[in-house]
């Protein structure tokens, strides 16, 4: 008995250690660094909440906060909604479905550097597709990435196109919903929309909730590198999200304490939104149940 169970623990150990060493430990330690000023050369100096006070009065930080909120507010609903739409559209075994599923997932496996290279062409005003289409209508566009709104929309578009992970999760979740429920809804004469409202949505709600929470993190993560390469946060900080600012402060300006503090604020903000969202979800669940 002990031999086998001990063996199981040994098998679990590498992941536990790896996670402790590379995820849990670093997250806690970064939280500690958030209260210091540290340049990686001289020992870190404890600064307490002064770091956060300085950040709050920092115009660049405030602008990054706004940019982050705008981009997340646009990207997350589109990503989760798009993933849901695709999953519901493509979950069956029909002609073209397999190919369309693969095509929908494809942008998510393309390395982010390649995505940046491609978007460089997409937004090119002279021979990129957007430029070609608009000029065919006699309008033409300027340099998209030099316009704050254009740059932000580009970032959102990049984020929305890499919705593969959520799509995959929703696809699996949709396939696990029991078919008899749908048959029942059909025999009761429910239309597509009623079916969605009364069967699909309530049953997928827990997954959607978790996915939306995760997407607060992922939607920013997938655009980090393309943004860095395409706009470097510009123009005028329109695409400088908090992860980008954390990178810039921590690793370009070697203000690791600042980088850690921005990361901590981002984490707390995510946690707050997740908490509110789960509370809403629970209330909604109760409302549906009664």
């Amino acid at each position: 008995m002990t031999g086998y169970r001990a063996g199981l623990r040994w098998l679990l150990l590498p992941w536990l250690l790896g996670t402790l060493l590379l995820v849990v430990g670093p997250a806690l330690i970064t939280a500690g660094f958030a209260f210091t000023r540290y340049d990686a050369l001289s020992p870190p100096q404890l600064a307490g909440f002064a770091v956060f006070r300085d950040l709050w009065s920092d115009v660049e930080f405030r602008r990054a906060l706004v940019s982050t909120l705008v981009i997340v507010a646009l990207a997350v609903p589109l990503r989760v909604g798009g993933g849901l739409l695709l999953a519901l559209l493509l979950h069956r075994r029909r002609r073209l479905d397999a190919a369309t599923r693969a095509a929908a997932y494809a942008p998510s496996v393309v390395p982010d550097v390649a995505i940046a290279l491609v978007w460089l062409w997409v937004v090119n005003p002279v021979y990129g597709p957007i430029g070609l289409i608009t000029s065919a209508f006699g309008a033409g566009i300027g340099a998209v990435l030099l316009d704050p709104a254009g740059a932000r929309l580009t970032v959102v578009a990049i984020s929305v196109l890499s919705l593969g992970e959520g799509f995959l999760v929703l696809l699996a979740a949709r396939r696990e919903l029991p078919q008899p429920l749908y048959d029942l809804a059909r025999t009761e004469g429910a239309g597509v929309l009623t079916e969605f409202r009364l069967v699909t949505l309530p049953l997928l709600a827990p997954v959607l909730g978790l996915l939306t929470a995760r997407d607060l993190v992922v939607s920013l993560q997938v655009v980090m590198v393309p943004t860095l390469l395409l706009t470097n946060g510009g123009p005028l900080g329109a695409t400088k999200t908090l992860p980008l600012l954390a990178y810039e402060r921590g690793f370009r300006e070697l203000e690791l304490g600042d980088g850690a503090a921005i990361a901590l604020l981002l984490t707390l903000l995510t946690g707050l939104v997740v908490a509110v969202q789960f509370r809403l979800l629970r209330r909604w669940n109760r409302a549906v149940a009664t």
Partner: peptide, 26 residues
């Protein structure tokens, strides 16, 4: 516990790991 931890870890933003990992590798 382990499954809960795995799902919670999906919600940690990557920047939260950068500084400490940098120091670790350094």
């Amino acid at each position: 516990f382990a499954l809960g931890a795995a799902i919670t870890l999906l919600l940690v933003p990557l920047p939260m790991l950068w500084v400490a990992r940098f120091v670790l590798y350094l």
